[in-house]
């Protein structure tokens, strides 16, 4: 009797396997009512989560601890893009070394550049460091369209969040009111945060810092701090001892207290400069998710502001 019963009724394991298979095979629209949003970075994913709430599942292709210039074009990532209802990328050639082949492999026509389900965040902000003269690789591994590291400026992050909310509303009109309400709430929270951050950073206005790469130009633009120099002599070019020796001189002459380095960079060169120049290396999360404390966009900015302020007050 038991044997007959076990033959007639699929076992729990079989049903589970069938469910997993169906979930994998059925198109996204039949599987769930929520939008599937894929972003290239954790910072963009955090902003998408702020405005989408539970109306969308949000996933980032890269991790916050990764250098976004050098993500592998792992074909497994193309699977995530295959059923994406929306792809949000940074743009300005930040992902040029890995995103284009993944988009092509995904066979998702609407997330191609300019597609209805593609949002390039750089289109929502004013871009810094756009080259105005001739550009070539003698200037290092520069971004010819301008600096793409703009999410360390909360003003620009809000502009990106606004663009994401508008795109989500376009793709999911029924959720427009919800996106708008969540965006308004995020805007209120960031406004309150900004007052607090501004108060903490106000005494530091005009202070000189050194950064590893030009990844913090937007943070400096927002906070009022000034870059006295860079550990990399040119973007992506390793620092020779002569450059580091020059930089030690700059650190001493300008009274630089902090050398800011994202945690995906090797801090060896920065440490040498700090040691000889009497400054300290401040390791910052490179993106949302770069550290335990930086799990949300506010957490990420909170941590950056706190670390910089602590270093300057020391």
């Amino acid at each position: 009797m038991n044997d007959t019963h076990s033959r007639d009724v699929p076992s729990r394991a079989k049903r589970l396997a069938l469910a997993v298979l169906l979930a994998a095979v059925l198109p996204g629209s039949a599987r769930a009512a929520t939008l599937k949003v894929v972003t290239t970075t954790e910072g963009l994913a955090a902003l998408a989560r702020e405005v989408a709430g539970d109306r969308a599942s949000v996933e980032s292709l890269s991790r916050g601890i990764q250098d976004p210039h050098f993500v592998d074009a792992n074909p497994v990532l193309a699977v995530k893009l295959r059923q994406a209802d929306l792809l949000v990328d940074v743009g300005l050639d930040l992902e040029v070394g890995w995103l284009p082949p993944l988009v092509n492999q995904s066979r998702n026509a609407e997330i191609q550049p300019g597609g209805r389900r593609r949002l390039t965040a750089a289109g929502a902000i004013s871009v810094l460091e756009v080259p105005t003269g001739p550009v070539d690789r003698s200037q290092g591994d520069i971004h010819p369209a301008g600096n793409p590291h703009f999410l360390s400026d909360p003003r620009r992050a809000l502009q990106v969040a606004t663009a994401i909310a508008a795109k989500l509303s376009e793709l999911d009109p029924a959720g427009a009111a919800a996106y708008s309400a969540r965006l308004a709430d995020f805007r209120r929270r960031i406004a309150a945060d900004e007052k607090r951050w501004a108060a903490e950073l106000a005494p530091l206005k005009g202070r000189k810092v050194v950064t590893q790469h030009k990844t913090l130009s937007y943070f400096l633009d927002w906070s009022g701090l000034v870059a006295a120099g860079f550990v990399e002599p040119k973007p992506g070019v390793p620092a020779p001892p002569a450059h580091l020796a020059d930089l030690v001189g700059v650190v001493k002459a300008e009274g630089v207290k902090a050398i800011l380095v994202e945690n995906y960079y090797d801090p060896k060169s920065a440490s040498v400069v700090a040691q000889h120049g009497g400054a300290r290396v401040v390791t910052l999360p490179g993106d949302v998710g770069g550290t335990e404390a930086a799990r949300t966009y506010e957490g990420y900015m909170d941590q950056i502001v706190r670390l910089v302020v602590e270093a300057e007050r020391a």
């Binding site: 994998a24 095979v25 193309a78 699977v79 492999q105």
Partner: peptide, 10 residues
Amino acid sequence: WLAPLPWFLE
């Protein structure tokens, strides 16, 4: 053909 599976199968 990219199969609609959770891993990459082409």
